[in-house]
Structures are given as structure tokens and as C-alpha cells.
């Protein structure tokens, strides 16, 4: 009885430590986002007066156009890049997990090589090429390079998921006269959907996080995503640092991340660990 109480206490302390570690920087920028401009230099963690003035500035005020257009760019570009990567990776991972064909190892090795590729190394040639062929500062101009980030991890994660699916179902369908393609569509897709969905979340995180492509391959509100826009935010006047507005914008783009994590914590953990080490 006594040792159980002690164990409880230890775990409570550990949990609090982990929570502080994980959430403190978020709490810090959250508190900053509610400070009034005059309060920003108070040297205190919490605002003296809680104010929504920063959120007003980026949502309905002066910085509205800048922030909302970049938010729209980020959502659109990340979702499309995620969608394309997941569709291609689903087909690819199915073939790797299920079919017998030469070159499987080559494909997996290529995915691994692409995932460790230094992004900045391909920015220079893309920057030059995109300017010549008119993809600079456009949505496709970011979606295409984003595939280099989202596709490899999607292939690895999905291949790991697909290896755990009971494939007898597919064989049963084939025995019943279905073609390989029909067996894939009717018997496997419903089983594979959770893995595909988890992969999509992980790929979305990665696309949503991009900064290097975002600042290098865009120049205006036409395609600039939020992380890049934050770096180029300027204050209401040139003497006023845009600390409050940036903090508010940072909190808004963190909300979807926190929601996805809260809803799908279990799936994300299993996806990340399975993609890394076969579970």
C-alpha cells in the first residue's frame, strides 16, 4: 500500500517535469502573444493585462493580408504535398510489402538517401530553374520540392504498416476470382486506411514545418508559407518590433499541431516508431 502511494508520487513528479519540459516554450510564447505592446518589455513571464490586440492585428488589422494569405498558402501547399506524397507512397509501399519484383531494395535505399539529403543543397539549382520556367513564387514551385521531404518518410512508414496487414485476406479475394488490383482495392484498402492516415499526419507535420524552401523559392504573398512570412514580418512602425504579432501568429499555426497530437497521439507514436524500427 505504502509503496503504491510512493510510486504514484514519483510518477506525478516525473509527469510534471515532462509536461514542463514539453510545454514551457509554448506557454512562454502564448503568454507573450497576449501582451500589450507597452507590456512586452516588462521582463515578466505573464502579461500584466491580458489583451487580444496582437490577434486583432493579424486577423483583422494591418497585418491581416500578410498573415492570412500566408496561412492560406501554408494550408493549401502542405495539404496538396501531403496528399500527393501519400498517394504515391501508398502504391509504392504496397508493392514493396506485398509484391515480388526486382529493385525493391533500390527503392527503399533511394528513399533513405533522399530523406537524409541536405535540403539547402537543392535550393540553389531549384531557385535558378524555377525563375527560368516560371515556377518561382508559385504553389507548384513549393509543392514539388516538398515531395522530397514528405515522400521518403511516407514510403518507409507505410511499408512498415503494410507488412503487418494480414494478407491472407487478399489471397482469399484472389482465390475468389479477384485480380491483384481488385484484391488490393476491396480487401486491403480498408485495413490499410489507418496506416495511411497516420502517415498523412506525419507528412503534413513535415510539410507544415518547412522553412528553407519557403524563404528561398518565394518572394511575395502569392506563395509564401507561414514560417517564411514570420521571418519577414515587420512591425506596425519601423521602431516597433513585431514581437506580439509574431507570437500571436505562431500560436495560431501551432493550434492544428496540438489538435492533431491530442486526437491521434497513439497513432503518431506508432507510426514514427514503426517507420524507424520494425515494431
Amino acid at each position: 500500500m505504502k509503496s503504491r502511494t510512493k510510486e504514484r508520487l514519483v510518477w506525478t513528479v516525473i509527469s510534471i517535469l515532462v509536461l514542463v519540459y514539453a510545454l514551457f516554450p509554448v506557454a512562454s510564447i502564448l503568454a507573450t502573444s497576449f501582451k500589450e505592446p507597452s507590456d512586452l518589455t516588462s521582463g515578466k513571464f505573464l502579461p500584466t493585462n491580458w489583451s487580444s490586440v496582437n490577434y486583432q492585428e493579424i486577423l483583422v488589422g494591418d497585418a491581416q493580408e500578410l498573415f492570412l494569405s500566408s496561412l492560406w498558402n501554408s494550408i493549401g501547399i502542405s495539404l496538396i504535398a501531403t496528399f500527393i506524397a501519400v498517394v504515391l507512397a501508398t502504391l509504392c509501399a504496397y508493392a514493396i510489402a506485398r509484391l515480388d519484383f526486382p529493385g525493391k531494395k533500390l527503392i527503399l535505399t533511394t528513399a533513405l538517401a533522399v530523406s537524409i539529403f541536405p535540403v539547402i543543397s537543392i535550393v540553389t539549382p531549384l531557385f535558378n530553374l524555377w525563375r527560368n520556367i516560371g515556377l518561382y513564387d508559385t504553389w507548384p514551385g513549393l509543392i514539388i520540392p516538398y515531395l522530397s521531404l514528405t515522400l521518403p518518410i511516407s514510403i518507409w512508414t507505410l511499408a512498415a504498416f503494410f507488412r503487418q496487414i494480414p494478407w491472407e485476406l487478399e489471397q482469399a479475394a484472389q482465390v475468389d476470382g479477384a485480380t491483384t488490383w481488385q484484391a488490393f482495392r476491396k480487401a486491403i484498402v480498408p485495413l490499410a486506411a489507418p496506416g495511411v492516415f497516420t502517415t498523412a499526419i506525419i507528412a503534413f507535420f513535415i510539410a507544415w514545418n518547412d522553412f528553407v524552401y519557403g524563404i528561398s523559392l518565394t518572394s511575395t504573398e502569392a506563395a509564401r508559407p507561414v514560417p517564411a512570412a514570420l521571418a519577414f514580418f515587420t512591425g506596425a512602425s519601423q521602431f516597433e518590433a513585431p514581437v506580439g504579432a509574431i507570437s500571436a501568429a505562431a500560436i495560431i499555426v501551432t493550434i492544428p499541431i496540438v489538435l492533431l497530437v491530442l486526437l491521434f497521439q497513439r497513432q503518431i507514436v506508432s507510426g514514427l516508431t514503426q517507420g524507424a524500427v520494425k515494431g
Binding site: 514539453a22 510545454l23 510564447i29 507535420f205 514570420l230 499541431i257 497530437v261
Partner: peptide, 21 residues
């Protein structure tokens, strides 16, 4: 569950946001 959820917040957060924080 609570610990894993908390740990995934830094994982998912945008690096630029972390840098500003």
C-alpha cells in the same frame, strides 16, 4: 497517454515557432 501527447508537441511544432519562443 498524457506523457506521449506532451512529448509530441515539440516534435510537431514548427521549428521557426520554437526559435521565436
Amino acid at each position: 497517454g498524457l506523457l506521449r501527447t506532451a512529448i509530441l508537441v515539440p516534435y510537431g511544432i514548427i521549428t521557426v515557432v520554437s526559435a521565436f519562443a
